[in-house]
């Protein structure tokens, strides 16, 4: 039900959308900055999860429900798990402190703020349109159109992406295998 409403950004029932937008925007924006300030890697991961979830909500608001689902499944479900794995595999101390030094933190924050401000200025100066000119059709974002586009206009990109995934799979496996070998070699060395 909610989804049906959300699909109609720019319609007369705009207030629901407005609320939802701010809700999701706050979720992702606040989490992102909490992430910046968090010293602990695990927490960072959790904040990232929240940010990504917020972005997924924004996608919902924009009518791209497939994208939102993919965002949740792939990012929140996959990438985040990967990151957690990475943390566990590389940290002897599970709560590794990754707190930045003071000067670095200051520099980073300053630069980030400058960037955000500049972008905001630019966006406002550009005078972007308030809303879309025409109300979209119901099935505008139908998944089948995405499928059709992927297999026609963006076929090459699609195939390239597929190939890249394959390469990544093989490459990652290869890199890890090398590591295992190296570990074994190191182990035998250590024994002797």
């Amino acid at each position: 039900m909610l989804l049906l409403h959300v699909q109609t950004v720019g319609s007369s029932e705009g207030w629901v959308t407005l609320v939802l937008f701010y809700l999701f925007a706050a979720l992702s924006g606040v989490s992102a900055w909490a992430l910046v300030l968090s010293p602990n890697i695990i927490r960072m991961a959790v904040y990232l999860m929240l940010t990504l979830a917020g972005v997924a909500g924004i996608y919902f608001l924009l009518g791209a429900e497939l994208l939102a689902a993919v965002q949740l499944i792939v990012y929140v479900g996959g990438v985040l798990i990967l990151i957690i794995f990475g943390v566990m595999l590389t940290s002897r101390n599970p709560y590794l402190n990754v707190a930045p030094r003071g000067g670095e933190m200051a520099l980073g924050l300053v630069l980030a703020t400058v960037l955000a401000v500049l972008l905001a200025v630019a966006v406002l100066a550009a005078g972007l349109p308030e809303a879309a000119a025409a109300a979209p059709d119901d099935d505008r974002y139908a998944v089948r159109w995405i499928g059709a586009l992927l297999l026609s206009r963006h076929l090459i990109a699609f195939e390239v992406a597929a190939v890249i995934l394959l390469i990544v799979m093989i490459g990652a496996g290869y890199l890890v295998r090398r590591r295992i070998k190296a570990n074994q070699a190191g182990a035998t060395e250590g024994r002797s």
Binding site: G29, M44, V98, G108, L111, A112, L119
Partner: peptide, 14 residues
């Protein structure tokens, strides 16, 4: 823009 700034801040500080 907010998210991007946060991302840059993270990349710079960690």
């Amino acid at each position: 823009a907010i998210l991007a700034a946060a991302g840059i801040a993270v990349m710079l500080t960690r």
